[in-house]
Design a protein around this nucleic acid. Structure first.
Length: 258
DNA sequence: ATGGTCGAATATCGA
């Protein structure tokens, strides 16, 4: 089973890139973030034509998550436990072939000095609460998405430039570690210890050409899935195409369930 | 050097 995640920065602006990527890489599941579209206007038909059912939780202009899958999407859950009708659309979960797949778009936080940063940490605490309920004993769960946190020093282009800053702040690291303490492993790090493997580069200032990026798009696997993980790749080529997203897809390949 | 580039919406905000 191949599970991928991609912050596409508008599913409508990126539709051709996304469909092309699905045709080329043939994942069973693709989690999307920053779809930036209400559910009624989601390009569902185009996914269906490629053989993917899709579940989405979107809103106008900002945020929005979705899960596309070749196999049926079951037991959908939209939003965190204590979300309300007006909450930002950042969490969607579905069970696919016995695997609980979660697509998350963690708040950016703007700047560590701003209230938005506190909101980010509060959202992560609520995510942990919700996942605590999703994660029953021995559950097969893949938490996929844009975490807006670079886990460690290997995941930033410059420790000096990022230390104490957004995406690399000790409080963000504490929040991510608290999540992982539920028993979630970073799929990419199960297979590749190297630094300078990034999933996002700013559109500005030629950041991609300078390889000034961050690894903030993650797939976190429960123990049951970590044992099945065969490889985890990030498709840097996606950033070299016309009109790319500022993020690239991350994909994990799982062996058969025992 | 406090910029720069996108997307959504059409002046600016969010990233």
């Amino acid at each position: 089973m191949k599970i991928a995640t991609w912050n596409v920065n508008s599913v409508r602006a990126r539709l051709e890139r996304v469909l092309e990527w699905l045709r080329e890489h043939q994942p069973d599941v693709l989690c999307l973030q920053e779809t930036k579209v209400v559910d009624d206007a989601f390009p569902t038909e185009e996914f269906l034509r490629l053989g993917y059912a899709v579940a989405m939780s979107g809103q106008k202009t900002y945020n929005g998550v979705a899960i596309a899958s070749r196999l049926p999407l079951q037991q959908l859950r939209v939003g965190l436990d204590d979300d309300t009708a007006t909450s930002e659309r950042r969490y969607l979960a579905a069970t696919i072939d016995g695997v609980r797949v979660v697509s998350v778009y963690v708040p950016n936080g703007k700047d560590v000095e701003l209230p938005a940063f506190r909101d980010k940490l509060a959202w992560l605490a609520r995510l942990r609460q919700t996942l605590g309920r999703e994660l029953s004993e021995g559950a097969a769960l893949a938490l996929c998405g844009d975490f807006n946190i670079a886990p460690d020093e290997r995941d930033v282009y410059s420790v000096e430039a990022l230390r104490g800053k957004l995406h690399f702040h000790p409080e963000e690291h504490r929040a991510l570690q608290a999540l992982q303490a539920l028993g979630l492993r970073d799929a990419f790090r199960l297979h590749d210890p190297a630094g300078e493997r990034f999933s996002w580069w700013d559109y500005r200032g030629g950041a991609f050409q300078r390889n000034q990026g961050l690894r903030i798009d993650l797939i976190l696997l429960s123990d049951a899935l970590a044992r099945r993980s065969r490889r985890c790749t990030m498709d840097v080529a996606a950033r070299t195409k016309d009109k790319p997203s500022d993020h690239i897809p991350v994909m994990v390949e799982l062996g058969p369930s025992p």
